[in-house]
């Protein structure tokens, strides 16, 4: 079984492509950083990651300009073949604005809206507690359901919201909500700072119904080694919670 080839799709303005590629390689897959306009080189990879940053400088709305880019049509086709597609932060915004998440119809069914934060308008970064709510998709299978992990967030537009009636209940019922913002004991408190951006039902990560596409606002590549986790420097290169996102992706590909 050869190395699984993952494309990290880089749009102008992104800035997390190298550490994302590093995380992919560190779990034993290969990573190609593919620019948004290298359309001939996109298809044919085993999986795709849309990393974080500010694609097109967040012009108009975070992720929307990239979501209308031709490369996203190719990624949609690859997703329809069942390939794993992960969007991290700005990548998550692109997946939501393209309609791939939650992907129940071809329309855009949700938004990652500007944060609601009682103290700061715009960009906000911090470490958050997340409860793994579903382990049935390609990116969370190596977690335990209900486990509480820490990862950092860093965004100005990450508040999951929708006006689709019944959508959040549907996501809950189908196990499509993969992660929720919680306190350190895993309780979903809707108030700041436990819910750091005002997301509906504390949603931090959502997958499609098939479980091969996931949009997550937290940055797993920044919680890959324990030395990246606050107060854990002595443990150095031992695995931190974000690593299992990439290991789960690898496992899902090896199953095929």
């Amino acid at each position: 079984m050869g190395n699984k080839r993952i494309a990290v799709i880089y749009f102008p303005g992104m800035n997390c492509e190298n550490e994302t590629a590093h995380a992919i390689r560190a779990v034993g897959m290969s990573a190609d950083i593919i620019r948004w306009n290298m359309l001939d080189e996109v298809a044919g990879h085993d999986g795709y990651v849309l990393p974080g940053g500010w694609s097109y400088e967040d012009r108009v709305r975070a992720g929307v300009v990239a979501a209308r880019d031709p490369v996203v049509s190719i990624i949609k086709e690859e997703a329809e073949e069942g390939k794993p597609i992960l969007g991290i932060c700005n990548g998550a915004q692109i997946l939501v604005e393209s309609g791939m998440i939650p992907g129940i119809s071809s329309n855009v069914q949700a938004a990652l809206a500007p944060n609601i934060n009682p103290f700061i308008r715009g960009y906000y970064c911090t470490w958050v507690h997340l409860r793994i709510s579903s382990v049935s998709n390609a990116f969370t299978s190596l977690y335990k359901k209900g486990e509480v992990v820490r990862m950092p967030i860093a965004h100005g537009e990450g508040r999951f919201t929708t006006t689709e009636e019944g959508l959040v209940d549907y996501l809950e019922e189908k196990g499509m909500i993969s992660m929720k913002y919680t306190d350190k004991n895993g309780h979903t408190l809707s108030s700041f700072p436990f819910n750091p951006n005002g997301a509906l039902n504390n949603i931090a990560a959502v997958s499609n119904e098939e479980g091969n596409v996931m949009a997550m606002m937290p940055h797993p590549e920044r919680a890959f080694y324990m030395r990246q986790v606050p107060c854990s420097h002595k443990e150095g290169l031992s695995p931190a919670p974000g690593r299992r996102i990439f290991e789960s992706m690898k496992k899902s590909l090896e199953k095929d």
């Binding site: 209308r68 604005e97 855009v108 949700a110 938004a111």
Partner: peptide, 10 residues
Amino acid sequence: EQLLFNRHYQ
């Protein structure tokens, strides 16, 4: 509809 607004929060 296609670009300048997202009906889910705007």
